[in-house]
């Protein structure tokens, strides 16, 4: 099967900054790939290269076999920038119709994409009356129009509430079912809600991970956290038995490798009535992401974001 996106050893150097270094990434038809990385990791730069806006300083990239930015490539690619402000005076329908015409899509598409993003009722209102979420959905509508073979979405879920985010992933799953590929970027894994086939993580312009989420979780091999709440007065015995660290006088917390988990759990269940409750937490998506992007001081960072 021919790849929709085929990037080989792509590097991009701006004056003093290496925005991308040796990035190789494929996207197959019908595949949904998430591109992760913190601000400045090179996600938008990669999109701009795929759109043909800038030429990589090294390496090669092709869109369905065509050069990025060529007429053939532009005919099959749709783009949603991170921030876009449509003319306030136009209605949502006029905006979508405008892009449908530019893409040479049938105008029947306009109504159906407006319905998909749930903007039919507001379609004939001016964009200036739209809420932030509605503007985001309008941006998605213009990207969906014309059934593109490749959707490039730059931070499409930032600013969406969890409910619309879920709706958004249903929409792109729909695109993928019809054979369209989706490449979307995001700040963190938790926003993805494990909805994409594959996750690629960029750190300072380098691809540090590229695989299905489950594979990344395995690869990171982060410890599982087990928290045991002991029955009253039994805390010392429990602690002596399973080890770990004591927290808040009644509980014990320990971390173990994924392979160790069942052995420890059976030991805990052997304690019988001494244990009141057990809580097992697999590493969160955020922790996996942090492992790959290795933001050491990230507690402080997260507070400010």
């Amino acid at each position: 099967m021919t790849e929709i996106v085929k990037a080989r050893n792509v590097s991009m150097k701006f004056k003093a900054v290496d925005a991308l270094t040796d990035v190789s990434l494929d996207v197959a038809p019908g595949e949904q790939v998430a591109l992760l990385g913190h601000n400045g990791a090179g996600k938008t730069t990669l999109f701009r290269i795929m759109l043909g806006f800038i030429k990589p300083t090294a390496g090669s990239i092709s869109i369905a076999g065509f050069a990025p930015g060529s007429n053939e490539a532009r005919r099959i690619v749709s783009y949603l920038p991170e921030q876009v402000a449509f003319p306030k005076m136009l209605t949502g329908r006029e905006v979508v119709r405008f892009y449908a015409r530019l893409k040479g899509a049938p105008l029947d598409d306009v109504q159906s994409v407006l319905a998909k993003v749930d903007l039919v009722d507001a379609a004939d209102r001016r964009v200036e009356t739209y809420s932030k979420g509605m503007r985001q959905r309008l941006g998605l509508a213009q990207a969906l129009v014309g059934k593109p073979a490749l959707l490039l979405l730059d931070e499409p879920t930032s600013g969406l509430d969890p409910l619309s985010r879920q709706h958004f992933y249903e929409l792109i799953a729909d695109v993928a079912r019809q054979g369209g590929s989706v490449l979307l970027s995001s700040h963190g894994l938790s926003e993805l809600e494990a909805k994409t086939d594959r996750v690629a993580i960029l750190r300072n312009g380098r691809l540090v991970a590229n695989g299905p989420l489950a594979a990344l979780q395995d690869e990171a091999n982060l410890p599982v956290r087990i928290r045991v709440r002991a029955a009253a007065t039994a805390i010392d015995k429990v602690h002596a038995e399973i080890g770990g660290g004591r927290i808040n006088g009644a509980s014990v917390e320990l971390f173990c490798a994924r392979g160790e988990k069942m052995r420890i759990l059976s030991k805990i269940s052997g304690l019988g009535a001494k244990v009141e409750d057990v809580d097992v937490a697999a590493p969160t998506l955020d922790e996996v992401y942090r492992h790959f992007s290795k933001i050491g001081v990230d507690e402080a960072l997260r507070g400010t974001l």
Partner: peptide, 8 residues
Amino acid sequence: QLVLASPV
């Protein structure tokens, strides 16, 4: 950017 990404 959107207009330039389209086939015009």
